[in-house]
Write a protein that binds this DNA or RNA. Sequence first.
DNA 1: TCTGGGGTCCTAGGACCC
DNA 2: TCTGGGGTCCTAGGACCC
Length: 422
Amino acid sequence: MLALVDCNNFYASCERVFDPKLKHRPVVVLSNNDGCIVARSQEAKALGLQMGEPYFKVKELLDRHKVAVFSSNYALYGDMSQRVMTVLQQFAPDVEIYSIDEAFLDLDGFRDLPELARTIRETVRQWTGLPVSVGIAPTKTLAKLANDTAKKNPGYNGVCVLDTPELWKPLLHEFEVGDVWGIGPQYKKLLNKHGINTALQFSQLPETWLRKHMSVVGARTAKELRGQPCLELELHADLKKGITVSRSFGKRITEFTELEQALASYVSRAGEKLRRENLLAKHMLVFMHTSPFAKDAAKDPYYAPSLSFAMPLHTNYTPELIHYALRALKEMYRPGYRYMKCGVMLTDLLPEGTETLDLFDRRDTVKQSKLMAAMDQVNQKMGTRTLFYAGAGIRQKWSMIAARKSPSYTTDWQGLIQVKAV
DNA sequence: TCTGGGGTCCTAGGACCC
DNA sequence: TCTGGGGTCCTAGGACCC
């Protein structure tokens, strides 16, 4: 048996932990650049606010209902996530951290699963302040479904155990096929067209049909709904395939030098990520684009070039990465466009020390990694951008908007919560 | 008029996830 | 004026090889 433990409205709940005044107030958290809504408290959902809804479109509604609005604070959410995972690891030896707010637990050999599920839920609540839901079933897909059921139906008190077909079959019959894990909007449309509306109907489709229309992935999902495990618990993350850093700008950019600064700082971030995981990259993709939402396409045309190339040698040395990225940028840049976003993707990754040595490699890689290590250390200790490349710009006029960010209560001394006796 | 077959590697695009 | 960011997996089709 597997458990899926999932934090309820994770980002919104994190904000609430440190500000009790928010307890019964609707809360929403915005994406980068305060662009759209990415998390909603229960009360905010009840107001009809949708996931992914652009902020500017619902601003008035938010004001009217006195909704508490936050820019996203990833330092806070990341730290709270770690706390939750640490608690979960006390309950089971094998835990797969699936995302920032959910984990699968291997419960083989455990007895009285409903009682265990309630204990997990209460302990996380008590030790971190965060509400979670627990779903238990023999496969990941069913555990997801159980979790979803526990979350959406108050009668379950946040816990749902589906350990026999007699328990899950009636639920499958009630469950919308589009809400099944692994079935997105496209497949939902296709399935509905063929008269498949419930998870139960889907789970009974013939293998050949599934393979033909939804590939092996769809066939696996159906099997999992029948209680046949196809997806293993992934206990050790395998080698990363790629690292991407991209951002929308706080305002449109037209100048080459500003693009250069933005790209250089994203590439620096990508370099940090590589080094943190002791990886080297060989391949680079640089991309940029103007707004796809432009009202007047004649005045504000869409332009979205990208350049993908192999670097001569594997590297994680930021100046080298910046060099190739800026060269690509220069090649793609056309004046007269209003750029909205750019980014870099590094692929062909290899753990440090496993790359083949090149006879003609003239780089002093020892010196380079010492320099990078020193820089990373300073930035980790003193805050990001304590040390940075001048090419990334000293005054970043294009940087992101985060007008409503809460303090980083748990990771920054300045953000430490203050309690006053009166 | 008929125009092989099978393998591998790469890329682009489409689907999904949080 | 204002629409996020970072991933994974699968398949089809083209290039190339023998």
